[in-house]
């Protein structure tokens, strides 16, 4: 056993499809290099499973550079694993040590049903955006980009929120499976910019209504969401969402 490789025991959630019940299955991962990403480690396990004729573990992933938001594993009880501000695909095995036992689970929330193994359906997020997470401008006829000066601090704050990659770790980590941070990020991003003002009330009312309809839990201001967020979107945006919704509710006719 050299210091650049390790052997691990994985406990992975296996579930055939949405209808069937799942269970944990143990696998040995041998000769894992410290330079591998967590997903590359799973690739290795899958190659071995395939060679043995066993169904490989299904997990979502795509860009493997921390921006598409597709990867989504709860690793030893923490969404995206032990590192701060890191997606699973950017988590490298040097964060683990030889002999570790690692439990791998899908995001668990009623609005994110498991499709297979570690793959979940996060289309609830899309539906939340579809009811109001946009500025209603059709293509063409936009004024010059510099016609509307925006203070740098506002643009920067909007960018802080706009960085959300829609991975769903906030929901996965929240003890209530609440989607507040996701909704707050979009409401905050557009609400901080002048372009987003005309639809500000409408947006927050619609998005919160859809969030509720999807069956997410309610925020209890704990902060687990921000703590696991790969883009470190802060609690401030949730406060802002609360404020916006309150104002919009009072003005609602």
């Amino acid at each position: 056993m050299s210091e650049t490789t390790m052997n691990l025991t994985l406990r992975v959630w296996r579930q055939k499809n949405a209808q069937s019940a799942g269970t944990f299955v143990e696998y040995e991962a041998k000769n894992i290099s410290v330079d591998m990403s967590f997903l590359e480690m799973l690739d290795v396990v899958n190659e071995e499973l395939t060679a043995r004729g066993e169904d490989p573990i299904a997990f979502d992933h795509d860009c493997r550079e921390g921006i598409c938001g597709m990867c989504s594993l709860t690793i030893n009880g923490k969404a995206h694993g032990p590192l701060e501000a890191t997606t699973t695909c950017q988590l490298h095995m040097r964060s683990f040590k030889n002999g570790d036992a690692i439990t791998v689970e899908p995001w668990r929330a009623k609005p994110f049903p498991v499709i297979k193994d570690l793959v979940t359906d996060r289309s609830a997020f899309d539906r939340i955006i579809q009811v109001g997470g946009f500025v209603s401008v059709s293509t063409g006829g936009a004024p010059d980009g510099n016609a509307l000066p925006i203070p740098k601090t506002d643009a920067d704050a909007a960018m802080d929120a706009a960085q959300c990659i829609g991975c769903g770790a906030c929901v996965a980590a929240c003890k209530n499976a609440s989607a507040m941070l996701f909704v707050a990020a979009k409401v905050g991003h557009l609400g901080l910019l002048p372009q987003g003002q005309t639809e500000r009330d409408r947006r927050v009312l619609h998005m919160v209504a859809q969030m509720d309809e999807e069956g997410f839990g309610n925020c209890t201001n704990i902060g687990s969401c921000s703590a696991v967020c790969p883009k470190e979107i802060g609690q401030d945006f949730i406060s802002r969402l609360n404020r916006d919704f309150l104002k919009a509710s009072l003005r609602a006719k």
Binding site: L148, I150, K152, A158, M159
Partner: peptide
């Protein structure tokens, strides 16, 4: 810009 893309300023 009209869509609310937060370009650097």
């Amino acid at each position: 810009v009209a869509q609310g893309v937060p370009f650097a300023r």
